[in-house]
Design a protein around this nucleic acid. Structure first.
Length: 642
RNA sequence: GCCGGGAUAGCUCAGCUGGUAGAGCAACCGCCUUGUAAGCGGUAGGUCAGGGGUUCGAGUCCCCUUCCCGGCUCCA
């Protein structure tokens, strides 16, 4: 028989030859480096026989698939070690994931496992790696497999196999054995555990079986693995660096905000943080008015009946805050839409008025479960850059496109490259299927018309309509939803909204819910991590640190600061009786974008020598007026880079 | 909300198997008057998250509560 190599050459092999034989036939070095093989585009074990005429490609450590393969191998080694150390443990699943792998265990009663146990687990794992245990595959009938795992008390495996039978009509399943450990597994695996060159257990956490909060809570052990010790080391250092960008850490360090037990999940914004907020708010005001949005302001407390009409009472009352006002039950708004609807309904509307676009920096409160709070990213006190567009069905696509373009305009300012998700009808929803069909199609058409790549998220829409979300990742790779464009045929129905058409008949408008920052809180959180605290001039809390050479230059420095203030800039004068070196250092640590060191020379010549953040050596001197004008221009342009 | 871990001075952290709390930085007070990343000396600062228990004795051991961290579930 023969097979074809990636470069098109053909290779003659004996009947029944395996991937390993093929690798050896090409070269001894390759055979040693080989981890697995791609056969007609499918990743397989080296030990499996090749079909005649197959197109093959040997997978080595250099292949992009290698890491995933070895991480999956390591997950099996972890399970092997845990089964030896904790007799009676039940195993469930253990896949490779981005940056590593995990394995979920159900530990026996009384076995308390924490990261303190990692060392002995890793020790055990190292024994298996050192032993270079072969991964061997065996295909057996589902009946035999069920019997085997039942006998071993591995209930989770039994359930997995039963699901394979019902969902895929499986008749056989594959088992992989390395050393004393056998697992139900699709494969493929590398030849042996010796291919794992570097690994580390990283964390431990609870995880529901099958991701279902109503089912058993398992113990998930996370780890990572690499093909060399250097790669592992580099990865760990990268994580350490990323932690330094954490907005919670920088928020404290730069004195932007703090969190307080007196109101969990609600940031206390400090003056420095508010400078950023204000700069952002200015952008928001400016662009919303340029784009035909009209700003409104609505109450935070609204009659409970309103939330019953909107459907929020039914779906979210456990996550809402309520209070009584003179015995009248009121709800604190978790969304602004029913309030904006009141403004729409306060007058008769004509088709000539549409689209009507209301915007509000609306403060909403949601009782987010305690375990989900996360710095500025997930708060209970949320300031949305909210907007609601009331329009005709014909106007939908154009309005959605305009929202998306507006979003990309904003994100471009920060150099954000968001990923897009289209989320469709959830199980628990309002409105009929025909309406959902139209709504989903409208959003999809808008995305396609704009040529935007997106991921589909079936079932993840809002209860009143489908949505397009803009996501960004934080410094540790966690994805957060920022902007959102949501289509809603339901609220107009529930609140009986109407407009008079050109036919003099009453028609139902459509609503678009839209936020681009998402919330000021989360957006600033992402901003902090994106810039690592080194904000561009237009966002920096302090834009110019004025550093007097000695105390006798304090007056002149304050005069300069006044001129900066008058120009609408944010200066700070360091009046301490410290050395220049010290004041420069502290300005650097405060991540100020600019420093002006001023002494006799500046005072006499009416010049300054603006020193950029991280600048080395002495900077150029320019006339004061020019320096200020240049800063004003840079702020006005919202220049991104230094 | 669930599982696991944590909480010591303003900040970052040390405090062995229980014997009455410590460093660096910051702060404050002096001196120095400084030219592009840390000048020198001194002073003060803590119901060891809160509550209960074990013990002659608890920062340290046990229980409860709150908050935080890492995941999971959720996220209008």
């Amino acid at each position: 028989m023969k097979v074809t190599l990636p470069d098109g050459t053909e290779l003659q092999l004996a009947e029944g030859a395996t991937g390993g034989d093929a690798a050896l036939a090409i070269g001894e070095g390759l055979a040693r480096a080989a981890l697995a093989i791609e056969v007609n585009g499918e990743l397989r074990d080296l030990a499996r026989p090749l079909p005649d005429g197959a197109e093959i490609s040997i997978i080595t450590g250099k292949s992009p698939e290698a890491l995933e393969l070895v991480r999956h191998d390591t997950a099996h080694v972890l399970a092997a070690a845990v089964m030896e150390l904790y007799p009676g443990v039940k195993i469930s699943i253990g896949p490779a994931i981005e940056n590593g792998f995990y394995y979920d265990f159900d530990f026996p009663e009384g076995a308390e496992v924490s990261d303190a146990d990692f060392e002995r687990i890793e020790q055990k794992m190292r024994e298996h790696v050192k032993a270079k245990e072969q991964f061997t595959r065996e295909d057996i009938s589902v009946q035999d497999a069920i019997e085997k795992f039942k006998a071993e008390g591995q209930d989770y495996k039994v359930e997995l196999i039963e699901d394979l039978i019902t969902n895929e009509g499986a008749e056989t399943v594959s088992l992989y054995t390395n050393g004393p450990f056998t697992d139900l597994c699709r494969g493929p695996h590398a030849t042996d555990t010796g291919k794992i060159k570097a690994f580390k257990l990283t964390s431990i956490a609870g995880a529901y079986w099958r991701g279902d909060a109503n089912r058993q809570m398992l113990t998930r052990i996370y780890g990572t693995a690499f093909l060399s010790k250097e790669d592992l080391q580099q990865h760990l250092e990268l994580i350490e660096e990323a932690k330094k960008r954490d907005h919670r850490r920088l928020g404290k360090q730069l004195d932007l905000f703090h969190f307080n037990e007196v109101s969990p999940g609600s940031p206390f914004w400090h003056p420095n943080g508010m400078k950023i907020w204000n700069a952002l708010h200015e952008l928001w005001t400016e662009q919303n008015s340029l784009r035909g949005y009209n700003r409104v302001k609505t109450p935070i407390l609204l009659d409970v009946d309103l939330w019953k009409i909107s459907g929020h009472w039914d779906k979210y009352r456990d996550n809402m805050y309520f209070t009584d006002v003179e015995e009248r039950p009121m709800g604190i708004k978790p969304m602004n839409c029913p309030a904006h609807i009141q403004i729409y309904k306060n007058d008769r509307r004509s088709y000539r008025d549409l689209p009507i676009r209301y915007s509000e920096d609306g403060l909403v409160h949601r009782h987010e479960p305690s375990g989900t709070l996360h710095g500025l990213m997930r708060v209970r006190h949320i300031t949305q850059d909210d907007a609601h567009i009331f329009c005709t069905e014909e106007q939908i696509q154009d309005e959605v496109i305009q929202c998306l373009r507006f979003g990309f305009y904003i994100y471009e300012i920060f150099g954000f490259e968001p990923s897009l998700e289209l989320s469709t009808r959830p199980e628990q929803r309002v409105g009929d299927d025909a309406t959902w069909d139209r709504a989903e199609a409208a959003l999809e058409n808008a995305l396609k018309a704009e040529g935007l790549p997106y991921d589909l998220n079936p079932g993840d829409g809002a209860f009143y309509g489908p949505k397009i979300d803009l996501h960004m990742k934080d410094s540790l790779g966690r994805s957060w939803q920022l902007g959102t464009v949501q289509l809603d045929f339901s609220m107009p129905e529930r609140f009986e909204l109407s407009y008079t058409g050109d036919d003099n008949e009453e028609h139902r408008p459509v609503m678009i819910h839209r936020a681009l920052f998402g919330s000021f809180e989360r957006f600033i959180g992402i901003l902090i991590e994106h810039y690592g605290g080194e904000f561009p001039l237009w966002l920096a809390p302090v834009q110019v640190r004025v550093v007097p050479v000695s105390d006798k230059h304090n007056d002149f420095s304050n005069q300069l600061a006044d001129r900066l203030l008058e120009a609408g800039l944010r200066p700070h004068v360091d009046e301490r009786s410290e050395s220049v070196g010290r004041k420069i250092r502290d300005a650097e640590l405060a991540k100020a974008p600019l420093m002006w060191v001023v002494g006799d020379e500046e005072q006499q010549t009416e010049t300054v020598a603006p020193r950029r953040r991280h600048h080395e050596g002495e900077p150029e001197r320019v006339p004061i007026a020019d320096a200020i004008e240049q800063l004003r221009a840079e702020v006005a342009a919202r220049t991104r880079a230094e």
